[in-house]
């Protein structure tokens, strides 16, 4: 039992961590927490199933297409729901606009794709039992993503520009950085990361329109625990959440494990509103 708790827990945890990174990537350049993060994960599963099972495309074509499609969704989100409300960030209108876009995505999926969970194909035909690919694929995807992001942010000029905008938007603009294009870029990147979460976890989550809100909530917990914008915190938080949830699942049952996760979430947040690894809020007067 311990092996399956570990396998499922780490797999789900990696998916949650990837959604958490999706939140962070969008937040970094826009200071906006977007409800679309979970929907991008849902779309990753749906597009994967559509392209590979219904259209019969091979993995090597289906994966880039899925990532590109979700990157496009990310860019559309930036145009429709983020840019118009950036001027009045303190009114938190983005909560409403991104919620609206997330619901539009979900409902269109429900109407076009259907409301029943659809199967997701095996990708590599590697591994059985607790070494089944459905358990280690998300972990691998998470490792690749975090490695890639570290490389991007620390070693490339583009990454430095991202960090500059994230640190001080105003100063970055004054330096002549193309802040708007960088923001669009980060939404495209977030779309691809979210898609990867849903694609790599597709065999566990299936292609199901209602996965969005679920991923939204469980992907947000690592962000809240790890501190906004902290990707390493999100990975640690995500894996911890996955293990905790699966342990509770196996010991006390599914329903009460969600109650346990919710209670834990609220208690931790009330005790440490900035997250376990986050910085204190700035002054207001």
């Amino acid at each position: 039992m311990l092996a399956s708790i570990l396998a499922t827990g780490l797999a789900m945890g990696a998916v949650y961590a990837l959604i958490g990174i999706t939140y962070n990537t969008m937040f970094a350049t826009s200071r906006v927490m977007s409800f679309t993060a979970g929907q991008l994960g849902m779309l990753g599963g749906v597009f994967g199933s559509l392209l590979m099972l219904q259209w019969g495309l091979p993995l090597i074509v289906a994966l880039p297409l899925t990532l590109a499609a979700c990157a496009l969704v990310g860019v559309v989100t930036e145009f429709v729901a983020v840019r118009p409300v950036l001027k009045s960030l303190d009114q938190h209108l983005y909560v409403l606009t991104t919620l609206a876009v997330a619901l539009i995505i979900q409902q269109i999926t429900a109407i076009e794709w259907g409301t029943e969970p659809a199967p997701f194909p095996r990708l590599l035909e590697v591994g059985e039992g607790v070494w089944h690919e459905k358990y280690w694929l998300p972990v691998a995807a998470c490792a690749v993503t975090i490695g890639g992001l570290e490389y991007l942010y620390r070693r490339t000029l583009l990454g430095h520009a991202f960090i500059a905008v994230a640190e001080d938007n105003f100063a970055a603009r004054a330096l002549g950085l193309p802040e708007r294009n960088l923001r669009i870029g980060s939404y495209a990147l977030a779309g691809a990361i979210g898609a990867l979460a849903g694609f790599s976890g597709g065999q566990l989550l299936l292609a199901f329109f209602a996965n969005g809100p679920l991923l939204n909530f469980y992907g947000f917990i690592p962000v809240a625990l790890g501190g906004l914008g902290n990707n390493r915190g999100a990975v640690i938080g995500g894996l911890a959440l996955g293990l905790f949830q699966q342990a509770a699942n196996f010991t006390v049952g599914g329903i009460f494990s969600s109650v346990a996760v919710f209670v834990l979430f609220i208690v931790v947040l009330l005790a440490a509103p900035q997250g376990l690894f986050g910085a204190a809020a700035s002054r207001r007067v």
């Binding site: 429709v80 409403l96 606009t97 876009v101 619901l103 409902q107």
Partner: peptide, 11 residues
């Protein structure tokens, strides 16, 4: 879907 579009439109 209608509610969501309305929400976006109002905001």
């Amino acid at each position: 879907l209608l509610y969501a579009v309305m929400l976006l439109g109002i905001v």
